[in-house]
Design a protein around this nucleic acid. Sequence first.
DNA 1: CAACAATAAATGAACGTTCATTCATTTTTA
DNA 2: TAAAAATGAATGAACGTTCATTTATTGTTG
Lengths: 192, 192
Amino acid sequence: MSKKEKITDKRSALLKATLNLVHNRGFHDAPMVKIAKLAGVAPATIYLYFENKQDLVNQLYLEIKSSFSDCAFDGYNDTLPVKKGFEIIWHNIANYKLNRIKEATFLSQCDNTPMIDEEFRKEGLKHLQPLLDLWEKGQQEGIIKVLSPYVLYAYAIYPVSFLMAMQERHIFTLSEEIRNETFQAAWDAIKV
Amino acid sequence: MSKKEKITDKRSALLKATLNLVHNRGFHDAPMVKIAKLAGVAPATIYLYFENKQDLVNQLYLEIKSSFSDCAFDGYNDTLPVKKGFEIIWHNIANYKLNRIKEATFLSQCDNTPMIDEEFRKEGLKHLQPLLDLWEKGQQEGIIKVLSPYVLYAYAIYPVSFLMAMQERHIFTLSEEIRNETFQAAWDAIKV
DNA sequence: CAACAATAAATGAACGTTCATTCATTTTTA
DNA sequence: TAAAAATGAATGAACGTTCATTTATTGTTG
């Protein structure tokens, strides 16, 4: 195992451990000692890879945000018709949020508490540009409502986060069958 | 000032202080000593009104959830036509989420982290029954899509939480003018 | 290639703080 | 003056982080 690979190895073990603990107990109930134990290293070792706890969680945020957008645009390219392109992205995101639950709930926690430094939050937002471009194209074609991208995101994408949370609490399940009807609601909300 | 009033007085001062601190720093960065100081009492006094910190925050959750639904159904009654009734409720909720920011972001934190005991979360959900009834009536009339109330909530109500969060971060503002267009998106999402 | 030295990585115990909670008193109320 | 409410100091546990050592890796030399 090369030097570089080993570094990545412990680093990602620590990120993974943090994800698991934060998912279950929240940021402030995920003590460094437990993170270390779960990752199979000594507490002091964390500080070889991260500046401090805040840095650790900031970096985890970026890492997951990036994996999220990678997934979101899988199979997408900007030559597709607007509706088709949106459909692909929407289903990618729905899959991510409903299958990779730990990652998705972690992102929800980050976006709804003061746990992430604003600087990193801004950084994590950039990845969604292709979706915003798609919407702008749709607006020019008269297909998509002329509303702020924040409003479009709120109605087209954000609702899935709620459904994920309900699914996580076992009080609702979004079956494959009704997933298409759910997509339709998203489309109806933003289409002209 | 009567005995009962005084009790309420300190109790609500403590709840208010907790809300302010949690809003700014999150649940675990809101120490009891600060809560006490902000409420103008000694730390030990908290334990005369609440069992412990968890109980304090659970009760704050219920209190705010209840004020939220009081606000949501202001001016509403179930004899109104479905769309009109929904419009009233939607605008009530939008007003609450966009004006009473501290309360709204507190609820967001509660709903997206493990900070509230499941039991209290369930309790807080009950208040929304009139909205679910309205939707069911709409479904019977063929006006509203036949989807789980969770899906309807996700698309009709939940998006406003996202817009609130963006407004709180000063990267977006939902002006009065475009609030109606935003309502239209909500309605389009759930109407047949 | 064996022996050793130099460097890097990893460790566990320890530190200083901070926290939620308790308790012996004091203060207020009835 | 008895009962109830409120207090501030004290307590022990838990936390993030540091540091003196130990262990592992790499490079060098005979």
